[in-house]
Amino acid sequence: MGRKMEWAGKEKHMRGIPRKLVFLAVGAFAKAVATLLNTTSVHNADTLIRLVRSRPPGIPLLTVSNHMSTLDDPLLWGFKGFPSLDANLARWVLSAEDICFKNYALTYFFRLGKCIPITRGAGIYQEHMNEALQCLNNGAWLHTFPEGKVSQEDAPIRRLKWGTASLIVRGHVTPIVLPMVHSGFEEVMPEKFFLDRRPPFPLCNKKIKIMIGQPLEFDIPKMRQVAISKSRGDHLFSSTTSRGWPVISSHGLDLDEAAQRCLYSTISQQIQTVMEELRSLAKSS
């Protein structure tokens, strides 16, 4: 399918008209569901809107959130005041290949919607992760669901997959990392509504809550040095079965697989801790 129709995701494809039409339609749908059919409250919305609209040129934005339903994206961006109809400002997002790219029509549609196919279980160095990395290197906004799959349980944030951390480390410029946590979408689009199936349309009169945190700062050069030292002295990282990861060279340092594991684990734990704090804040408010 031509590298999953990567050409259809290009900004200049048919002068950008199909992409604009998709975002007008999907953005209007998201706003209708999030603001008209349901009640959405957002904590710290101004921070997200500011970073989407006017962050420094060339600085990428990486937002991360929990994953409560198959409609988290685009409904996350449907709240009042967010520029969800603007294709130029819209996020790129990692999307499950087995759901969004099952045939030509779906692949074309989701490509126009700035979605990047990810094969679950194929590892953090699979082909299209390089496409996601390129988006960040271009200074774009990328959203990920680092838990890796939908979970509608009222439970703590699960251990994050390391793909998001690898993008933070490998980027030419360290992205602004903005954690988010939401609830309510599991009621808008429950996985088991009738006969263990999702409803054909989003449900109404539900309360959606979106908690947006503060940007996280990662001193990657320093963290690389710490990871190299720690991985050499930590039996847990050095003895783990090799997956054949490539050595990463940056800032004059080479990261072997053990150092990468150590670094990705550290970054993921920091993001997960903040997400869990946001989840606890949401439950208490």
Score class of each variant (00 low, 15 high):
Asp46Leu: 01
Leu263His: 08
Leu112Gly: 10
Ile176Cys: 03
Asp234Val: 02
Asp196Asn: 15
Ile116Ser: 12
Met129Ala: 13
Asp196Trp: 15
Gly16Met: 10
Glu276Tyr: 05
Ala45Glu: 04
Gly213Pro: 03
Glu127Val: 10
Lys222Ala: 12
Gly16Leu: 07
Asp98Arg: 07
Lys114Gln: 15
Trp162Val: 14
His235Glu: 14
Leu216Ser: 02
Ile116Arg: 08
Ile124Asn: 02
Arg53Gln: 06
Ala140Arg: 15
Ala259Gln: 06
Phe201Ala: 14
Arg224Thr: 05
Lys209His: 13
Arg91Trp: 01
Trp141Ile: 05
Glu217Arg: 13
Glu127Gln: 14
Ala282Gln: 11
Phe109Ala: 11
Ile49His: 00
Met14Ile: 15
His251Val: 02
Trp92Glu: 01
Leu133His: 05
Gln272Thr: 13
Arg53Pro: 00
Val33Asn: 07
Met14Thr: 09
Leu160Arg: 07
Ala259Val: 03
Lys102Glu: 02
Gly9Lys: 11
Met223Phe: 00
Gly171Met: 01
Asp254Met: 09
Asp73Trp: 14
Pro146Gly: 03
Ser265Leu: 12
Asp98Ile: 03
Arg111Glu: 09
Asp234Ala: 11
Phe185Thr: 09
Lys206Asp: 08
Ser41Thr: 08
Met275Asp: 10
Ile118Arg: 12
Ser284His: 07
Gly16Lys: 12
Ser238Asn: 08
His43Trp: 04
Gln214Pro: 07
Trp245Met: 10
Ser265Arg: 12
Ala90Cys: 05
Pro156Thr: 09
Pro215Ser: 07
Trp77Met: 10
Pro246Cys: 04
Gly184Cys: 05
Glu186Ile: 03
Leu133Ile: 13
Glu153Lys: 14
Lys102Phe: 00
Ser166Val: 06
Ile212Phe: 03
Lys80Gln: 09
Gly121Asn: 07
Glu131Gln: 13
Glu131Trp: 14
His67Phe: 09
Asp98Gly: 01
Asp154Arg: 08
His128Glu: 15
Gly2Met: 10
Val274Ala: 07
Lys222Ile: 01
Tyr104Cys: 09
Phe218Asn: 08
Ser268Met: 13
Pro200Asn: 11
Pro179Trp: 04
Thr70Ser: 12
Asn38Leu: 06
Gly252Asp: 05
Phe101Ile: 04
Pro57Thr: 00
Arg111Trp: 09
Lys149Thr: 14
